[in-house]
Design a protein around this nucleic acid. Structure first.
Lengths: 335, 335
DNA sequence: CTAGAATAAGGAATCGTTTCCAGTAATTAG
DNA sequence: CTAATTACTGGAAACGATTCCTTATTCTAG
């Protein structure tokens, strides 16, 4: 089965030349005669030789492989980011190893160690924790370029793709206020990460602009994912002090919130105002006119790939900012 | 940066032993003395040594890497399959390289060649074409075990995970008939692949059972994906002879169909009967009570991983059948 | 026509492991 | 007490490429 592997030795033997000459021809080196090139290429063609990537990597010290680690591949936004990054990296000759961290710190650590053992050329990651010493140590130990998704990288030796959630959420909040909502609840994931902090900034900015007092009871932070949002939404709407609008930060959160609302018989755009932060595939088809804060996941993927290739080329770490756009639809006002 | 790489030589030097002994200790070989084991392990711990996976692979001839190739990672069903397979394979010590073929034959070919150069230990793939000679040649050239998703493997040297679409679609069709629909349109992707043929079997079986004549005008096959389904649905409902129910095969098809229906002002469960084949994340939340034919993507992933590990262990190719379940909800009868 | 440069090709070291083969030391049997 | 195993350990040859270093040849110039 794999016995039919043809190596550079076979090519050299067939062409009657040294293996170093075969290598030189294949790497497009200058100092080879026309005759040599022709003979070698004939032998290569005849034997169907393909260089062994493994041996090349070992010798060259580069694997042409990038690790891509995210919390959850099945999150449609992330899967688009991953696909787009993979596409872009492949054009530059890199393969991508995709790994889930399931949002767990230990899985993440194990993944980094795996990447290191595999001599990955770089890692694009959406980290679980943003705690600076941990991140710094992780990056140092890896010994390869790192691009972080949606994380601040101040004082870190890494590049980052960061999204301007703030302005999107600010505009969304302002629109809700404009439409008469004053008791706006805000739902998002872990509070110690950039994405959450940045969204809250936008939320608070809009409230401040409208001179509405911030009510901490309406800000529900905890975990990313459907379950947390579902439970928190149930709580929010089963107390005395109820909000009359809801901003759900993230795809999971929006799903969980919508599920809870459905069970409660509360309809977005009818009984409350509602904005989803992030969209999912067929957003316009599957949902009934939800207002949203949009960001382009393909651009995020491309940006992360660009940053990675820059780092590999030896450039200094840098950042790319991806904008967000508030898209008002039916759910952000009552009808 | 990567200058701090510590090799087995360093460990051997620090422990004052031969590198072969270090290797023996680390591989858990029997013939090492306690003293030797202790010294080596101390040195390993002190230096933080991790074996280079690349060198190991080159020497051992196995990369512990599986290639996973699908048409489209952003299809939520596939992304769950991929995640589940990755999870299962990782438990067995394998990493997964995930690659898109975008449904294009040339991309697929290129991917196989990439996998081969990387000496992948096996490939799990959802192939673009099912044309036997092509598939056979591809598998032979790869020289590594192959598991196909949703493909018949008769006469091929490969294992397969196949889904029993037929019975799910049959039940769905029968339910529509029972609810009074006789003009049931059926939408699916390429007609030369198992998944489409198998679904049609179920559709035709139910019609035959009910003694309803099959009307080829109502069977619309062509491409997977949203666009095709969207266009075909528009056509279906803008002719004289209109169906009064629709089965959409696949996530993309369901999305495209729903989009078209929305534009036409035709509501599933109101003006027509509707069944989606395959579900997507938050299916119950995002859609308004659509009937569906369900299959468990996690099980598909696990099954593909199991089959792959079996093949690697030297077992003969085999198949696993994943069942489908018709889940009637509001959209398959009028109200 | 010969010295020196330029060109082309071969040989060998190297990347970091594993594993086979010897050889030495320790153990047991006779 | 010596011979025959057995238990460890070190050395070296792979794995399949790249690349540096030589050396042989050809070319140009003086």
């Amino acid at each position: 089965m794999s016995r039919n592997r043809v190596t550079i030795h076979d090519v050299a033997a067939k062409a009657g030349v040294a293996i170093s000459s075969v290598s030189r021809v294949l790497s497009g080196h200058l100092d080879v005669s026309e005759k040599m090139r022709a003979r070698v290429e004939a032998a290569v063609a005849e034997l169907g030789y393909e260089p062994d990537h493994l041996a090349q990597s070992l010798r060259k010290g580069a694997t042409n492989t990038i690790g891509f680690m995210i919390r959850d591949i099945t999150n449609p936004l992330f899967s688009i980011v991953a696909q787009s990054a993979e596409h872009e990296l492949r054009k530059a000759g890199y393969s991508t190893i995709l790994i889930n961290s399931h949002g767990e710190l230990e899985a993440e650590t194990e993944n980094f160690s795996l990447f290191k053992r595999r001599r990955i050329d770089g890692v694009i990651a959406s980290l679980v924790s943003e705690e600076a010493p941990y991140v710094r140590k992780t990056i140092r130990d890896l010994g390869a370029p790192v691009v972080l998704l949606d994380r601040e990288v101040i004082g870190l030796d890494a590049s980052a793709v960061i999204c301007d959630h703030q302005s999107g959420v600010r505009d969304a909040t302002a629109d809700l206020i404009k439409n008469g909502f004053k008791k706006i609840a805000f739902l998002s994931g872990r509070k110690d990460v950039y994405i959450t902090r940045n969204r809250i900034k936008g939320y608070e900015e809009a409230l401040a602009n409208a001179k509405i007092k911030i009510d901490d009871d309406f800000i529900r932070l905890g975990k990313f994912g459907e379950v947390f949002a579902y439970e928190e939404t149930l709580k929010l709407f089963s107390r005395k002090k109820q909000p009359n609008a809801l901003i759900a930060g993230g795809i999971g959160a929006a799903g969980g919130a919508l599920k809870a609302l459905r069970e409660l018989g509360i309809r977005p755009g009818k009984e409350i105002g509602f904005v989803a932060v992030d969209e999912w595939p067929m957003f316009d088809v599957l949902t009934s006119d939800l207002s949203s804060v949009y960001r382009d996941p393909e651009e995020m993927g491309r940006a992360s790939a660009r940053l990675m290739l820059d780092l590999i080329a030896g450039h200094a770490p840098s950042q790319e900012l991806v904008p967000t756009h508030y898209r008002p639809r039916a759910s952000s006002k009552l009808s």
